[in-house]
Amino acid sequence: MVLQLCLTSAIDDDSYELCTSTLCNLSGNPPVLFNNFTAMFKPNPSFDIEQTNSKNQLIEQNRLKLCKGVPLDCLEPDNKQRDHRMLRKYDDDELKGFDLRILQRMLHGSIDVDEMDVDERDASDSAWILSISDIPPAGANRKVSSQAITESTITTTGGSSASITSFLSELGYILDYRLLVIGVKFNMKHNVYLELSKIWQIDNAGITRQLTKGGFMVKAFVNVAKSTDIKSINNGTNALLNLQKELSGYIDLTIPDRKSMDSRLENLNDI
């Protein structure tokens, strides 16, 4: 179980250029382009699911997050233009020049037999990270948000219906919604990562809507591998607070509302 400590903020599109060069100088590292495709799955609503397990413990229904990177050449064919400046062209709902069918193929597999052979050769193509995140615990005197994330690596999928979606439907989960994130990240000091990202939601009809229109979401975080490692948690917290202090007056990093980071199904009673 990973504990993710984080602080968030936002900047507008016009500040992006100056902000990346500021952060670049501050961290001493160039920005790294990243992107990921997230598919959130929820328990199949047609099932009558108990809220307790066989030991009579309360287990709330939680969404499953399935995540993997999208090959960059799908977004930007020209190798030379693949740097942080590339993000400037994505200021709209539409993802110009991006073929959404790639995402469809990732989730549901290809029906075409010839293409399946191609997939087999590149094993990392069918790899996914499956994770479940808890709601961050409540508490008045928290300095940073801390969220426990349980994750598992799926290296390949197999079987006669080999897509990841068909396995998850056997598991009792169906696709809820899909997100695409493109952003840049900076390696700051003391294992702190700072991400500036644009996020799109993709609906079932394949229409994309940018959630971060007019700006970028800013997220500074530290991952602590063990939630019992108090020393690392304190170090991570202090590192984040130092960054918050360093950037204050420019980017004001704050603790996000814990309720907005809750991925349980809504029909359950809130704590």
Binding site: S9, A10, I11, D12, T254, P256
Partner: peptide
């Protein structure tokens, strides 16, 4: 930088 949107709503 200005804050063009509410981060919590995006989260």
């Amino acid at each position: 930088p200005k804050q063009p949107f509410d981060v919590d709503s995006i989260l």
